[in-house]
Amino acid sequence: MGRITLDKVTKKFGDVEVIPPLDLTIDDGEFVVFVGPSGCGKSTLLRLIAGLEDVSGGEIRIDGKPATDLPPAKRGLAMVFQSYALYPHMSVRKNIAFPMKMAGMPEDEQKRRIDNAARALNLTDYLDRRPGQLSGGQRQRVAIGRAIVREPAAFLFDEPLSNLDAALRVGMRMEISELHKKLDTTMIYVTHDQVEAMTMADKIVVLRAGNIEQVGSPLELYRNPRNTFVAGFIGSPKMNLIDGAEAKKHSAETIGVRPEHIDVSASEGTWKGRIGVAEHLGSDTFFHVHDTGLAETLTIRASGEVALRHGDTVFLTPQADKIHRFDAQGLRIA
């Protein structure tokens, strides 16, 4: 149904190699998230899969069949763009019908699918409006509706939520996750936001400069980041990465401790420091601690309300079994 295989796929723009040879298998029904900093090649990779760009080398297979030279229309994939890319001159109904019209589907089947999609996406009352008369969230839903009526082998999403405001984003995130559970169709989802990746993915692919840094489930990446890049990218607030003498004590070049894995005490601990900024969120409290004798400022996350404030002296102790060790290349030491 929707198994996608990339075999030594590369992409060059002129002389610039944006994607070095890359292998990846996406299983049928999986929700895969490509995550990485902006400019790392996520969109390019997605567009290669979509067929909107040619690969410079390697092969793409969809359900085992070679798709490398197929035009986008023949790949059986649907895409939701960051800008939604709705047809501004067509009503919502016509937008959703467009792929079916192109496929020459019978009118009554088209109507049935439009009605189903509209109901599922809460668009029934808006079917005769133009995209320009809809809110951002509604446009997003129309774009998704246009994608699902085709019953594609896989959905491709390119940063679909980045144009929405924060509250709407959380809601749409859940809707897309539920949609995936309901349809059980392969989804490939591109984002630069690691929170989206962690909350939605079955499998996360972390990219840096076109290279896959690590592939795994959200918790695998959280627990066992393969290198300092993944360690720093996954998790919020960021993992504390400490170089120098302190790392040497653990026979590593760099050690990493997540903010939530450092215990705070007023009287004793491994490191003694002074609180700089304290961010009280209610459910959590974040401290930035200076003057610990380490080169780095440490970030600490404590649960609930903690009555420490700017200027207080604190003692910090990393949880021994939660210390990540990395070598000179930044690779994890097992």
Partner: peptide
């Protein structure tokens, strides 16, 4: 925006459809 034309390509439009519709 070129993305709208790309969307039509993903939706199965041929070049002729893309230009006409």
């Amino acid at each position: 925006p070129g993305e709208i034309l790309e969307a039509s390509r993903m939706d199965g439009a041929s070049l002729r459809d893309e230009i006409i519709y």
